[in-house]
Nucleic acid binder design. Sequence first.
DNA 1: CGCGCGTATGACAACGTTGTCCAGGCTCTA
DNA 2: TAGAGCCTGGACAACGTTGTCATACGCGCG
Lengths: 358, 358
Amino acid sequence: MPGTASRADRPADRPAAHAGSRYGNRPTMKDVAARAGVGLKTVSRVVNGEPGVTPDTERRVQEAIQALGFRRNDSARVLRKGRTASIGLILEDLADPFYGPLSRAVEEVARAHGALLINGSSAEDPAREQELALALCARRVDGLVVIPAGDDHRYLEPEIRAGVAMVFVDRPAGRIDADVVLSDNFGGARDGVAHLIAHGHRRIGFIGDMPRIHTAAERLRGYRAAMEDAGIPVAEKWISLGATDPERVRRAAEEMLSGPEPVTAVFTGNNRVTVTVIRVLSRHPRPVALVGFDDIELADLLQPGVTVVAQDAAALGRTAAERLFLQLDGDGTHVAPERIELPTRLVMRGSGELPPVE
Amino acid sequence: MPGTASRADRPADRPAAHAGSRYGNRPTMKDVAARAGVGLKTVSRVVNGEPGVTPDTERRVQEAIQALGFRRNDSARVLRKGRTASIGLILEDLADPFYGPLSRAVEEVARAHGALLINGSSAEDPAREQELALALCARRVDGLVVIPAGDDHRYLEPEIRAGVAMVFVDRPAGRIDADVVLSDNFGGARDGVAHLIAHGHRRIGFIGDMPRIHTAAERLRGYRAAMEDAGIPVAEKWISLGATDPERVRRAAEEMLSGPEPVTAVFTGNNRVTVTVIRVLSRHPRPVALVGFDDIELADLLQPGVTVVAQDAAALGRTAAERLFLQLDGDGTHVAPERIELPTRLVMRGSGELPPVE
DNA sequence: CGCGCGTATGACAACGTTGTCCAGGCTCTA
DNA sequence: TAGAGCCTGGACAACGTTGTCATACGCGCG
């Protein structure tokens, strides 16, 4: 009976020339149907828990599924249904402790909405960000959470028009109008620097990342604002901007700590810089006050404890993901892009409360 | 001419009842073909860079692609080709700093093989691990890197038979024969404890995770082996096994540090435990030696620096992923499951070299 | 006893892509 | 100039699933 032809006899008449051979011989609904002696659609109904199947038929189908080890092919399902129930997350570096909790928070929200999370690291490279984002769109993820590396995201416009939900986190999108969830970088930096000023410092250094990165620029702006509010003129030699590799940061720190009028306090622009500066200060003869942006683990156990402006990475991720599903679950009506700013928190642990020592 | 019917007229005759409506009206190869005035397959050839297309035709197709904002639907591609060019990673908690570098390393290898990484956290829950693993298999990932939470992975047998590559990391699979990449937990712990013994300690505490976790059991075994090698009988009150929440760990540490014969050194079974114990010891009147399993950031800046048995998380991830692609790229011939053990490294920073203080 | 209705089931097309295979037009040569 | 051979391009089926629609069956009621 030729109609019963199924996986079992395929190798015979078509010698696995075709790539599908990779999947051993995975049973399909057709195979299950044949074995259970029912129609294809009935199997589909059972697999998806749709109503309209007699208990007896259902049992037969379930047995066939068990016997064959059938598992629904979600690729085909996706193709048919249009939704993939997966979202993408593009961040800078999964190995950075700041992004771990963020990623985890996004995943939790995705899970709550029955979606899987696909993620990729851009390594702070705009080209790689674009490549990844487009690859994810080609996979037809339902939405994308992006921590931008580049500053021009017009390449995503066709995707957004095509209905891919999109939320940017940590830094705003470049040249397109889209949802963004940020920390209050400006306010946080300003408060941190003001805290140093309140403890008597006037010569305060700032070591930050490349100003093309939005967060870095905002934090620098916060630093300048705090100094200006206090009427303190800023010497440009107190400011270091650029790559945050330990070597450069170390040199920058040593430079502003030397000379005739050294800084008595340093404000560091992110966790990596903070760690490096702590190392420098630990070998420095004079005590120097320090406030860092981003919390770091074990900051409370160092001598002195490290005062930081903490952002809530998990809250950033959670908020962004929830915003994404708001776009997705909405009944097609477009949600107006919004800018959401989350507050930072000054955590005093000692290093930021040191008095100036000349 | 009815044959030319395409996206443009679909809303008219079928009022978007079907779920695909989510994707606005994404252009397909058919649309591109119509616009460029060529056949469907020719578009496919251009998109995939296949030979056999005149430069002029190619240009027309490219223009149509640009104009329509076409992007290939990889779901359909996957369905047709059988391979998804994506692998799954199931770990315990992305927010744990140990897994960040591991995950990143897996991603790098995947990227080098042109694959995307889908990941999920099991939260140390076997049921959730299984749910995730099967969901990824339903998505037809080509392979799976699993950090097991459960201890019975027979549920994956049909998947492996169906050709899904599989590698376990950090802990071996339960009740199935599969590739596994591990750190030398036993040897590392034994060396760490022997190091304390070499510095004169005899009453040494061990605080670890639940022994049903393979790594925890192995490290405990290493502890006992070192003690036995030195001829030191172990008092069971020196050993604490169980959940690693800070509160329980703190109580366990305080208990073994009090009483008539307190421990003079502690060996901690993982990074979370180590951090908690550092907090306890920092408030403890007597100096107590400490060696921890897993490196922790800033361990060198604490007073004293924290001596650790470091595993190379990135190497674990890299090795596992490479092993996975070895299975995948192999010409169908089954690769015999292997157990790969990576060495650990004792990093001396001070806390492990403290002499015993009664 | 026959008709109509509700329910369980199955046939079929479609999702968007790629592999196979054939047709038509070109060049080159005898 | 005609035939052989090559190269470009397109028609068609198939991947495994789900939505639509039709059918067949059983049952209750007139």
